[in-house]
């Protein structure tokens, strides 16, 4: 590490820390420093932290390495649980579309589960493709349309 006045230079080995952790840690530091990322050679990042006015440079290197470590752990945890978490949110969103308090008749539970499953898959595919054009909760539908009463004959 080479220290200059008001600037800190850190070298990061991507064999130890994933590149995503370097980017995330660099972003975290963007508030207190002007951050410049470069590559020294294959597998070695160079991170230059130009300390912003009012921020002390002391301890910045250690803080950056700590941040790297925590982000690397977060990435591992996130990668491990990503699919399960997506499924939980998808199921929450799909089940919110079902009328509340309506219980299926005896023997119909399997059909409901299969329908739910299909909807979850559809939602996950939609999320994957980035096509969020529908309004499944009807929050853009005006009250008068949603609750329109049939005219009395």
């Amino acid at each position: 590490m080479v220290k200059q006045e008001r600037a800190v230079r850190v070298e990061v080995d991507t064999a130890v820390y994933p590149a995503e952790a370097v980017y995330a840690a660099a972003n975290t530091f963007a508030g207190k420093a002007f951050v410049r990322l470069g590559i020294k050679r294959k597998g070695i990042f160079v991170v230059e932290l130009g300390v912003k006015p009012g921020v002390g440079a002391a301890g910045l290197e250690g803080e950056f390495y700590n941040e790297l470590l925590h982000h690397a752990l977060r990435l591992k945890v996130s990668a491990r649980h990503h699919a399960l978490r997506e499924r939980i949110v998808a199921q929450a969103l799909v089940s919110a579309q079902l009328p509340q308090g309506v219980k299926p008749a005896a023997g119909k539970q399997e059909a409901v589960d299969a329908g739910l499953e299909k909807e979850i898959e559809k939602l996950l595919k939609e999320a994957e493709s980035g096509s969020y054009k529908t309004d499944p909760m009807g929050i853009a539908v005006p009250w008068e349309k949603k609750h329109a009463r049939k005219p009395v004959k």
Binding site: L84, I88, Q91, S95, A96, M137, G138
Partner: peptide
């Protein structure tokens, strides 16, 4: 052994503000 249905219900309750409109 995560209970997906129970966790989804919790998530839905925590985020119930998403489903009502302004």
């Amino acid at each position: 052994g995560a209970d997906v249905t129970a966790l989804a219900a919790k998530w839905r309750r925590k985020n119930s503000f998403l489903f009502g409109g302004p």
